[in-house]
């Protein structure tokens, strides 16, 4: 991970109008999967352009602090300690004072689900662009042929996308798409129902009908760490109802899908997401992307976006 130092602590940065991270400074941001962390090892990373260090103790306590010019000496100083928590198997850090409750993902606690961290991948694009791609159905036949889509089944039927006042998240329902090989458990093509939630500016969760038990839905989530305005770390999480495939097979499927998206994401111009809805052409099938952009605008999210 990147090693560098900050000139200012976030408490000072908040008042700096030039720092686009100031409007998300209090939010919890993911910095890694607990699965991948060795106890008592210091990990360096960059969050919202701020270089930080974190470690996890034997008792699963997470400590994080901002790197300063004199190395990581400030670790002993209580004032430089950052707020941390562990949620859904991931380590989250706030550069400010977290006020909101953590978003709900009750499926994580269902006893018959398998919670799997698929991987963390660095992508040279803004976090909102990574989220927008995750929310897009229309690209499936072209970028994921043979799995999530197949020509000529390119139609995205009309669906509902709304910004929920209560819970403050974006929700899209009744998204139907024909997929030849929707999941590692799928044996044939079928029309899959999707539900999408965006409960955090840089996190999105999709629910898709399970290939074996159509009454239940598998969960695929992406928790994105905004590193710089044009770089992010994408953490892929799955909560699956699947008693057939190994963790390796499930991870492998998810990684294959994500790696198909990666070069396309990295070639997007601009790398930040424009919030002006007239900046990029959108069609009816982009209703969810449009709602996401509106919601980011409403929340005044500036880091990784091009504000209106």
């Amino acid at each position: 991970m990147v090693e560098s130092s900050a000139d200012q602590l976030p408490s000072q940065l908040v008042n700096d109008p030039a720092w686009p991270g100031r409007t998300v400074v209090d939010d919890w941001q993911v910095v890694g999967s607990l699965d991948q962390i060795e106890v008592d090892v210091n990990y360096q990373t960059v969050l919202l352009d701020v270089p930080i260090t974190f470690n996890v103790t034997e008792s699963r306590e997470v400590r994080a602090w901002v790197n300063t010019r004199c190395g990581s000496q400030t670790s002993s100083s209580a004032s430089a300690r950052l707020k941390t928590c562990v949620q859904y198997g991931y380590i989250w850090v706030s550069l400010g004072q977290p006020t909101q409750n953590f978003f709900e993902m009750p499926e994580y606690y269902e006893p018959d689900r398998r919670n799997i961290h698929a991987a963390t991948i660095r992508v040279k694009v803004s976090a909102p662009r990574a989220i927008e791609n995750f929310l897009d159905l229309a690209h499936f036949p072209f970028v994921h042929p043979g799995t999530l889509g197949e020509e000529p089944f390119t139609e995205v039927k009309d669906y509902d996308a709304v910004i929920l006042e209560e819970g403050d998240e974006v929700l899209a329902q009744k998204c139907l798409f024909w997929q030849p090989n929707a999941m590692p458990t799928a044996t044939e093509g079928y029309e899959v129902e999707y539900v999408y939630r965006v409960p955090h500016p840089y996190c999105a969760i999709l629910y898709k009908a399970n290939a074996i038990d159509m009454n239940r839905m598998d969960v695929v989530a992406i928790f994105v760490q905004p590193v710089s305005e044009e770089e992010c770390n994408a953490n892929m999480f799955l909560a699956m109802i699947d008693d057939q495939n190994s963790d390796t097979a499930i991870r492998s499927f998810q990684l294959m899908i994500f790696a198909q998206d990666k070069p396309i994401l990295e070639n997007q111009i601009p790398k930040r997401l424009p919030l002006n809805l007239r900046a990029e052409m959108s069609a009816r099938c982009d209703a969810l992307s449009t709602a996401y952009r509106r919601w980011l605008h409403k929340r005044d999210v500036r880091f990784g976006t091009i504000p209106q």
Binding site: H117, A119, S246, D247, T248, R251, S252
Partner: peptide
């Protein structure tokens, strides 16, 4: 035979 190279280091 899938081997979990990353992140599993299998």
């Amino acid at each position: 035979i899938p081997v979990d190279f990353y992140p599993g280091r299998e």
